[in-house]
Amino acid sequence: MKRPGPLLTLLAGLVLGLFLLTLDATTGTKPASSPYEERSPTPAPARSAASPAPSPTPSPSRLPAADADYAGRTDDDAASIAVSVRDGKAIAYFCDGRTKESWLKGDVGADGTLRLTGKNGAKLDGTLEDGKVIDGTVDVGGGHHAFTADRAKKPSGLWRATATVRSAKIDGGWIVLRDGSQVGIVTRDGEPSPAPRIDPRTGVVTVDGQQLTARPATP
């Protein structure tokens, strides 16, 4: 019997190759991805909105001194004192009702401190507490006095009258206290003497036979 020749062997190889090619197409093997293949960017995680930092609480500004009048006595009961405060300014009057007096003026600090000065080295140092009372010291004519002046209610407070009577220059100061008592001095051409009483409702006062009108004294 004659053996198959080379042609038969070649034919068998061709059939095997076709079989393998058909198998590869059926299984659908996926080629490897190219390292340069464009990829969809991964979305960044949503950032939570940061709460704004709380604003620092401003320190409360100090309130200005209350505009009012204050009147009282020195602790040694030697004299009276009245203070009038307006718009951060102050005027004060120290009076013993006989011959010693002094007008003082100055500023009121934002913390309620008073530093007032007058003639001949007179000075007043005080503190306004809660708009109700002034505690302090006053130096006048070589004397040093502690004092307390409470907030005054009309007609109590500080009064002043200036005029010319019989060619004399008149300057009068009065302190009306809460109990209705009055302390005052009238100077005639610089000479002090006890002042006559004023009408606290109207301020009317008679000096040397002439009627004058005292008015509330303010800075």
Rank of each mutant, 00 (worst) to 15 (best):
A71C: 07
W103G: 04
D69F: 04
V83E: 04
S84A: 09
I91K: 05
A68D: 15
R62M: 02
R73E: 03
F94T: 00
D76R: 04
S80K: 03
S80V: 02
D67H: 12
K105D: 05
P58L: 13
S80C: 07
V85Y: 00
D67W: 07
I81L: 10
A68T: 13
A68E: 11
P64L: 04
S84M: 06
E101L: 01
P60N: 09
P60E: 10
D67E: 14
K105R: 13
G97D: 10
K105V: 08
A90D: 09
A79I: 00
D77K: 11
R98V: 11
A82D: 01
P56I: 13
D76F: 06
L63D: 14
P60H: 03
D87K: 12
D77S: 12
G72F: 02
A65H: 02
P58T: 12
V83W: 00
T99W: 10
P56T: 12
A71Y: 01
W103F: 01
S102V: 02
R86Q: 13
Y70T: 09
W103V: 01
Y70M: 10
A82F: 07
C95N: 13
Y70S: 11
A90V: 15
A82P: 05
D87P: 01
R73H: 10
P58W: 05
A65Q: 06
D75I: 07
W103H: 03
F94Y: 00
L104E: 01
E101V: 05
R98C: 07
K89H: 11
R86G: 05
D67Q: 12
S61W: 14
A68K: 06
S84V: 03
I91Y: 02
P54I: 13
S84H: 00
L63P: 12
R86W: 09
S55I: 15
D75S: 09
P54Q: 11
A92M: 01
T57H: 11
G88I: 11
D67S: 07
A71T: 15
Y93R: 02
T74P: 11
T57G: 07
T57P: 10
G88Q: 11
R73I: 06
R86N: 06
S61T: 10
I91S: 04
P64K: 11
P64Y: 04
L104Y: 08
G88H: 10
D87E: 08
P54K: 13
A71H: 08
I81S: 03
G106Q: 14
P64F: 00
G88C: 08
I91L: 07
V83L: 07
S59G: 14
A82R: 01
P60I: 06
S61N: 09
G106P: 14
V83D: 01
D76V: 14
P54N: 14
P60W: 06
D96G: 05
P64A: 06
A71M: 08
D69W: 03
A68Q: 11
I81T: 07
E101W: 02
A92Q: 08
A66F: 07
I81P: 05
V85Q: 10
D77Y: 14
R86C: 08
G72C: 00
K89A: 01
R73N: 12
